[in-house]
C-alpha cells in the first residue's frame, strides 16, 4: 500500500465517522467531535493535493476549495433548512470561484447568476413553507445516517485514490502516463484565450447549435410542466355552490 493510499484510507475512515456525527441524528451530542474529525480528514486529503505552479496559485486554490467543501458539509449537517440553503449558496460561490480559477469565466458568472437566482427561489420556498412552530422532527433526524455516510465517503475515498494513482503513474521511460498533448501556448489560444466569451459563444452556437435548440425546448416543456403540476384542479379552485 503506497503512501497516498494510506493517507486516503485514513481520511476515508475519519471522514465517514465525522460526517455520521455531523448528520442530524436527533441529538446535538458529538457535533464538535464530528467537526474535528471532518477537519482532520479534509486536512489529510489536502496534504495529498499536488502543488500548482507557484504558492499564490496554491493559496487561491486551497481557499476556494476549502470554502466549497466546508460549506457543502455544513449544508448537509445543519438542522434548519434555511441555514442549509444559505450554506449551499456559499458552496456555489466557492464553485464559481473555482470555475474562474480554471479559466471558465463565462461559467463562473453563469453559475452565480443562474444558481443564485434559483437558490433565491428555493430559499423563498423554504421560508414560505417550512417555518415550523418549534423544531420539526423530520429536520432533526436522518434516514440511515450510518449507511449513507459510509457509502458516500468510501466512494469519495476510492475515487480520490484512483485519481491520485492514475495521474501519478509513470511509464517505463519515467515520463507520466497521463500527459496533455497541448502546450501552454495552445491553451493560451484555446480555453485560456483573452477572447474567452467570444470563443465560448462561437462554440455554443456553432458546433452545439442543435443542442441549444433542444435545451430551449426542454426549458419550455419544464415551464409548462411546472405550471400544470402546481395548478389546482378546477373543481378545487371553484367551489360549487352548496346545494340546499
Amino acid at each position: 500500500m503506497s503512501d497516498s493510499q494510506l493517507t486516503f484510507t485514513l481520511a476515508t475512515l475519519l471522514g465517514a465517522v465525522g460526517v455520521w456525527l455531523l448528520l442530524p441524528r436527533g441529538t446535538a451530542r458529538g457535533w464538535a467531535a464530528g467537526a474535528v474529525l471532518v477537519a482532520i480528514a479534509l486536512g489529510l486529503g489536502a496534504s495529498r493535493m499536488l502543488r500548482l505552479e507557484d504558492w499564490v496559485a496554491d493559496g487561491v486554490f486551497f481557499i476556494l476549495a476549502g470554502v466549497t467543501v466546508v460549506a457543502a458539509v455544513a449544508t448537509i449537517s445543519f438542522r434548519d433548512p434555511v441555514l442549509c440553503a444559505i450554506w449551499f449558496g456559499l458552496s456555489l460561490l466557492g464553485t464559481a470561484g473555482l470555475f474562474l480559477f480554471a479559466g471558465a469565466q463565462f461559467l463562473a458568472v453563469a453559475t452565480v447568476v443562474v444558481y443564485a437566482g434559483a437558490i433565491l427561489v428555493t430559499f423563498l420556498f423554504v421560508l414560505m413553507l417550512a417555518r415550523p412552530k418549534g423544531r420539526a422532527t423530520w429536520n432533526r433526524s436522518s434516514w440511515e445516517p450510518v449507511v449513507s455516510a459510509a457509502t458516500g465517503i468510501v466512494m469519495v475515498g476510492v475515487l480520490s485514490m484512483t485519481i491520485s494513482d492514475v495521474l501519478a503513474l509513470r511509464g517505463e521511460t519515467g515520463r507520466p502516463i497521463v500527459e496533455a498533448a497541448e502546450t501552454a501556448g495552445d491553451r493560451a489560444e484555446g480555453v485560456l484565450a483573452d477572447q474567452h466569451v467570444a470563443l465560448v459563444g462561437a462554440e455554443l452556437f456553432g458546433r452545439n447549435l442543435v443542442a441549444v435548440e433542444v435545451a430551449g425546448t426542454l426549458l419550455l416543456a419544464a415551464l409548462v410542466g411546472a405550471a400544470v403540476i402546481v395548478a389546482r384542479p378546477r373543481s378545487e379552485a371553484q367551489e360549487p355552490p352548496a346545494a340546499d
Binding site: 457543502a72 449544508t75 440553503a85 417550512a130 449513507s148 469519495v156
Partner: peptide, 18 residues
C-alpha cells in the same frame, strides 16, 4: 469527487425534501 460524495450523502440521508 468530494462535492459529489457529500451531495450523495445528503440526498440519501436528509428527510427534508428541499
Amino acid at each position: 469527487a468530494v462535492l459529489f460524495g457529500i451531495g450523495m450523502i445528503g440526498f440519501f440521508s436528509r428527510r427534508n425534501m428541499i
